[in-house]
């Protein structure tokens, strides 16, 4: 219905016409999410280029994670349209992989590493299809890509924070998707894990897949990503890192007081 209306009008309510974006991995128009009375994300437009690696950055409480969750339909949208590879979410889900925040689950849950990765195959396995050796092999290969094959039989409660994050990434790899959405994949992980994760993500990009990650460490944005989406409830800036990741935009997103500290941080970590 919304779609028909847009076609009739030739434009989405706000921003570019959605139809011209139909081949984009992810196009969001006018996305608003509200917890209670206060909008967490307000009328957000976002376009993710094919084969790009995009960082969603912004201060705490800016609605970064909420944006991802709303795109995936995990939290309800108040308004807005989302199209993934030109199709509504319901049709494009098999092409999306999602890595939630590590802290969002209970790691004392009774399950093994390999079983978590097998959850990435749940669409294929359905309700009752038995888990075959070929499935296990694929799960094991995904663990290999994050350097954790030897941990397959471990209880997940025995893993370090970095290892937990790698298992989550392996589960997303098992989903074999075209669009990877990651929520703070580098939060609280050790240096070796950070390198392992970025290697995997860059590998995904070189295979032509698209990566979008909520990111909190401004000092690595230039090294890790080619596009950036800066938000603070509203969209602040969007585009290639070289253009959009500017001091002026950071100041608008993080506010003047904080921005000074952040710029110092960037000078230390940047090049």
């Amino acid at each position: 219905m919304i779609r028909a209306l847009q076609t009739a009008m030739g434009r989405s309510p706000i921003g570019d016409p959605l139809d011209t974006l139909s081949d984009k991995p992810l196009a969001v128009r006018g996305l608003t999410v509200s917890y209670g009375d206060k909008p967490a994300v307000f009328s957000l437009d976002m376009t993710v280029e094919d084969g790009s690696m995009t960082a969603i950055i912004g201060p705490n409480g800016a609605g970064k994670s909420t944006t991802l969750k709303a795109v995936l339909g995990i939290v309800p949208r108040l308004s807005g349209v989302v199209s993934v590879f030109g199709q509504p979410l319901a049709k494009s889900r098999p092409r999306i992989a999602y890595v939630p925040q590590r802290a969002s689950v209970d790691w004392d849950f009774p399950t093994r590493v390999i079983d978590v990765v097998l959850m990435g195959l749940s669409r294929e396995l359905g309700l009752l299809r038995p888990v075959r050796e070929s499935h296990r092999q694929r799960a094991s290969d995904c663990l290999e890509r994050v350097g954790m094959r030897d941990f397959a039989e471990r209880q997940i409660g025995q893993l370090s924070g970095g290892q937990q994050q790698r298992v989550f990434l392996a589960r997303a790899l098992a989903q074999d998707a075209d669009l990877y959405l990651l929520d703070e994949p580098f939060a609280g992980v050790d240096a070796a894990t950070e390198r392992a994760i970025i290697d995997v993500l860059k590998g995904l990009r070189s295979e032509g897949r698209t990566v979008v990650a909520v990111h909190h460490d401004l000092s690595t944005v230039r090294d890790y990503f080619d596009h950036v989406m800066m938000i603070n409830v509203h969209k602040v800036a969007e585009g290639p890192v070289a253009e959009a990741f500017s001091e002026e935009n950071l100041q608008r997103a993080y506010g003047g007081r904080l921005a000074a500290n952040l710029m110092n941080q960037l000078q230390l970590g940047g090049h």
Binding site: K69, I74, A90, R93, F109, T111, S122
Partner: peptide
Amino acid sequence: AFDAGFAAAAGV
């Protein structure tokens, strides 16, 4: 039970 967010994203 383990990860409702992931389940929802996967279409459950």
